[in-house]
Amino acid sequence: MELSQVNWEVIIPIVAPIILIQLILLAIAIIDLVRIEKVNGPKWVWILVILFVNIVGPILYFVIGRRND
């Protein structure tokens, strides 16, 4: 099946909300990373992790990246 054959009009309303909340998760992680003073490890690594590791990246950041003290 070619991409053009995919019936996007049916797919988008179903998948769009999922992509949206995934983006919210990603955005919150990034905003917090920019505003926070100190993280576990270098900040630029966390940016890469959050941006490129799907779903798990932001979770890892919230669990391990943010310092608890």
Partner: peptide, 11 residues
Amino acid sequence: RNFKWIWVPIV
């Protein structure tokens, strides 16, 4: 404050 109310429900 540590965003648990946001990320846990989303996940």
